[in-house]
Simulated scan of single mutants.
Amino acid sequence: MKDLFGIIAVFRTPDAVTNAAAHLRQSGYSAIDAYTPYAVERLDRIIRPGTKVFLPLLMFAGAVVGAAFAYWIQYWDEALSYPLNVGGRPYNSWPAFAVSTFEFMLLAAVAAGFFGMLAASRLPRLYHPIFAAKAFERASRDRFVICIEATDPSFDPASIRALFEQLGAERIEEVPA
């Protein structure tokens, strides 16, 4: 199925798309995605079950690396490269380095979170094959669309179409790749 991205079904209500997603997940489909005009409670947990720890760990790693780099650059400048005796204080004066280390740590954590969020969302993505589907036009206004991608191991267009009809889909369409 190289010429087919997937099959989409359009539903009228958020409850219908949530029930369809739960039924698809119980049927063994894993490459499922939903497109809704607003956030639908429970839908994300049905489509992508499990805990998501990627972004918090990435931000923590960014904070640790940022703090270590900020402290190191100050230590290198003040104690190793250009030592200046200011008021008899030691060259490695950690209280003087604490504020800017904290500020750079926050900057690195926020930057890691921002770029991690973009990577996890696969953004910026200017084109997606699902944009070619005529039924997708109302997904941002008043319809709820669910898609089973052709990459799913148990992808069979005929059985998926029958399953969507059984679930009460308003419209079913194949999406070209």
Score class of each variant (00 low, 15 high):
G50D: 06
S100I: 11
W94R: 01
Y75V: 14
E173P: 03
A9K: 03
Y29I: 13
P157T: 03
L107I: 15
P176K: 04
V110L: 12
D156H: 04
V145K: 08
D77A: 15
A133C: 06
E174H: 02
V110N: 04
V10H: 03
F104E: 13
A112L: 10
R25T: 03
N85A: 08
Q26R: 13
A120P: 00
G168V: 03
P14T: 09
V86R: 01
A31D: 15
F136S: 05
R141N: 09
A109H: 04
Y75D: 14
A112E: 07
S154T: 03
S159W: 00
V64W: 09
R171C: 08
S140Q: 14
G50W: 04
Y91A: 13
G6L: 13
R122N: 13
Y91C: 05
A177G: 07
D3I: 06
Y127E: 12
D142P: 03
G28L: 05
V99I: 09
I73A: 14
V145Q: 09
A9L: 07
F54R: 07
Y75K: 07
T101Y: 09
A162K: 02
E165Q: 13
L24V: 06
S100V: 11
R122K: 13
M105N: 00
A67N: 05
D142E: 02
A109Y: 04
G50M: 00
F102P: 11
K134P: 03
L84F: 14
R25G: 05
D33S: 15
R122E: 12
F5L: 14
V110S: 08
K134A: 09
N85S: 07
F11M: 04
R48K: 13
R138Q: 02
S30I: 11
F97C: 04
F97A: 06
L126Y: 08
T18Q: 12
P56S: 05
Y71F: 15
F164V: 01
R143P: 06
A133P: 10
E170S: 04
G168W: 05
Y38P: 01
A9G: 08
A162P: 00
A108W: 08
A120I: 04
A96D: 12
